[in-house]
């Protein structure tokens, strides 16, 4: 076999590859695969569409699915917001954001209202989303029935037939044993009255935001290779019983030490003296709702721009 010069080989490869040629970490072929899967996901709200999830420069379990979804959606004239636990400044969010910006050439935003695509791990922003915005949630485990039945075949059958009886029994047993539904984050929800989903480990506090939203919500699991979606104006209901209403996380008397809010999702920070200070998880929202009296010296949570 003759050896071609390196340059000639590279050119030949580019020509043969067409638009699947690598210009970056996510080629057109891969983007189209995600786009096609997402179209099905929108048409069948809540159904986990299998897709050919590529390996990305972030490890599996670290947002490779969210990254693929965002890169398939985003364009150079968009602004992307990336948050983890509600924070823009987190190391993982920052890493993902620079990969996205570097790849798509798009702008970046921390203000929720100004972002076109928001990729988030474990939170839905406090600021209500608008028509035209897309929320991409990073999903570790897309299968809500994982803790209910072990066989994948049985899980798929249950979804196919809309037969979630075993799930209901599990919830019922939970209440009987614990007095409350002990399921914390990633609370199972029924979408469009048809599919039960794992909404990703967002707190129960965020679940109501999914219902009848103005935005499109995309949930992408890279490691498990499934993508699902909730179109705007779609019914999303957490599974619960008539006489055991859905409750959200709440601590009496807790309020954010920065902005004073007691109706956003708060994170408890244990202090050395045994007390707990509470702060908003959504750092952008918090930074925009500070009291007028600007004597705050602590700037944790704000992104200096």
């Amino acid at each position: 076999m003759t050896t071609l010069s390196a340059e000639l080989t590279e050119r030949s490869v580019e020509q043969l590859a067409g638009d699947a040629a690598p210009r970056d970490i996510f080629d057109e072929l891969s983007k189209r695969a995600v786009r096609r899967a997402l179209l099905t996901a929108i048409a069948v709200p809540g159904y986990q569409v299998p897709f050919s999830s590529r390996e990305m420069p972030v490890a599996r379990g670290w947002g490779s699915g969210g990254l693929q979804a965002t890169l398939a959606l985003i364009g150079a004239d968009d602004n992307v917001k990336v948050i983890d636990q509600g924070e823009d400044a987190g190391v993982n969010a920052t890493n993902l954001r620079r990969l996205i910006v570097g790849n798509a050439g798009c702008g970046e935003e921390t203000e929720t209202g100004l972002a076109d695509v928001i990729q988030s791990r474990h939170r839905i922003p406090e600021e209500p989303l608008k028509d035209g915005q897309t929320l991409v949630l990073q999903v570790p485990v897309p299968e809500p029935l994982r803790g209910v039945v072990g066989s994948m075949d049985e899980q798929r059958r249950m979804h196919a037939e809309g037969d979630y009886a075993k799930m209901w029994v599990r919830l019922y047993e939970d209440i009987v044993r614990n007095g409350v539904v002990s399921h914390s984050a990633d609370y199972p929800c029924l979408v469009n009255g048809r599919y039960v989903i794992a909404p990703s480990p967002i707190p129960r506090f965020d679940v109501p935001k999914l219902n009848d939203s103005e935005a499109l919500v995309v949930l992408s699991a890279g490691r498990e290779k499934r993508i699902y979606a909730i179109p705007p104006h779609t019914r999303v209901e957490p599974l619960t019983f008539e006489d055991v209403p859905f409750t959200v996380e709440h601590t009496e008397g807790a309020a954010c030490v920065f902005c004073g809010s007691d109706d956003t999702y708060l994170i408890g920070v244990p202090e050395e003296d045994g007390t707990t200070r509470w702060v908003c998880s959504d750092t952008d929202w918090c930074s925009r709702h500070r009291p007028d009296d600007d004597t705050e010296t602590e700037t944790e949570g704000e992104v200096s721009r």
Binding site: D84, Q85, H122, S184, A185, P203, E249, L266, G268, S281
Partner: peptide, 12 residues
């Protein structure tokens, strides 16, 4: 990775 959002939910 940080999990304090869902951890707080577990504590709740």
């Amino acid at each position: 990775l940080p999990h304090h959002v869902d951890f707080r939910s577990v504590i709740d």
